[in-house]
Design a protein around this nucleic acid. Structure first.
Lengths: 182, 182
DNA sequence: TTCCTTTAGTTGATGCGTCAATTACTCTGA
DNA sequence: TCAGAGTAATTGACGCATCAACTAAAGGAA
């Protein structure tokens, strides 16, 4: 796909332009809006939330740094920098792995648990009200299918990088599972 | 909307979680994919492209910095930093305004024209093939309507910042309009 | 064991966006 | 005509992401 000069460029028509502008605005503003909601209500960024969320879902609230990075679809170094900053805020800790001398585990602290438990309801409510309450189930299906097809097209071209993993847990964070007091 | 603790949080169910993960991945990866395509094929970023695109569509390929910033939905300072970098690459120039001593006009140079004319076909083709060729017209309508409603919901909450303007011209850049040779 | 390769994670340099402060100019009203 | 308020744009500091080294440990083969 693309890179073929033999055909004249098919420019967008008026209707397509409208749709494209809506899509374009959406992809720039929606992530920023997620960030603003969390910053406003919970004083954390969406990326910090993502880390806490993934940790809260794994047993012992503890995970190898590399696994965490690949769950999130991030580079190791991005996670490393972020974990350092989060450690200084006291929401996570680094502990060296029992099984691999090179490894570092990232662990949720009690403060981290408190932070994710406080932030999750507001975040999920925001997503539910902004997205799910705004769309019928049929529209939700079309949306998912459309986005998935767009993704597949771009992946064919080798331009879809990440499996920007789970994160933003739609399920309730349950410290009990991990032996940490709520 | 939001901020109401009186009702229990409505967590996402399995189906909603699936949809949310698809949407979430999409909003993080799609902008990055646009950037990669332009970087790969035209050695420019999507934000540089946006500036060139807006300029290419205005008469004289020249526009007040402030107007340009608001067209793009950006802060003035972001544009100022970017224009400085682009000026050093030779694709735009700054000239002080005739009508307002405080003002600066940003002007497309001949090299800037060449750059946008070379990049636009590939970019538009990428968008067409990734988005429009992947969706039926009915799906395109649902998509636009869904995104617009989500946007409206978030705007009610005061969390939708920008009118991330036009940019990424779906129409062919035409230097003739501006009295610059192709 | 010893050497070599691979892997885990960190670090520092760089680039970009945001925010607050600053400069320079315009506009308004006494 | 001049003081004060408002506006246009720039600048510098800071936070975060990316990339290219770099350190340290694991794994494999002779």
């Amino acid at each position: 796909m693309n890179g073929d000069d033999s055909q004249p460029t098919r420019w967008l028509n008026e209707r397509e332009r409208e749709i494209w502008l809506a899509l374009r605005e959406f992809i720039w503003e929606f992530p920023a809006a997620l960030d603003r909601q969390l910053q406003r209500d919970s004083e954390m960024s969406i990326v910090e939330y993502s880390v806490l969320a993934v940790l809260s879902e794994c047993s012992g609230a503890r995970k190898r740094a590399g696994d965490l990075a690949s769950d999130l679809g991030w580079e190791r170094s991005r996670l490393s920098h972020l974990v350092r900053r989060m450690e200084s805020k006291g929401v996570v800790e680094r502990m060296h792995s029992d099984i691999d001398g090179r490894g570092q585990d990232v662990v949720l602290t009690a403060a981290g648990w408190a932070a994710i438990r406080a932030a999750a309801p507001g975040h999920v409510t925001f997503v539910r009200e902004a997205v799910f309450d705004a769309l019928t189930p049929a529209e939700q299906d079309v949306l998912e299918s459309a986005l998935t097809r767009i993704r597949a097209r771009i992946a064919e071209d080798g331009l879809w990088a990440g499996t920007a993993g789970p994160a933003c847990p739609p399920v309730e964070p349950t410290p009990e599972d991990c032996g940490v007091e709520a």
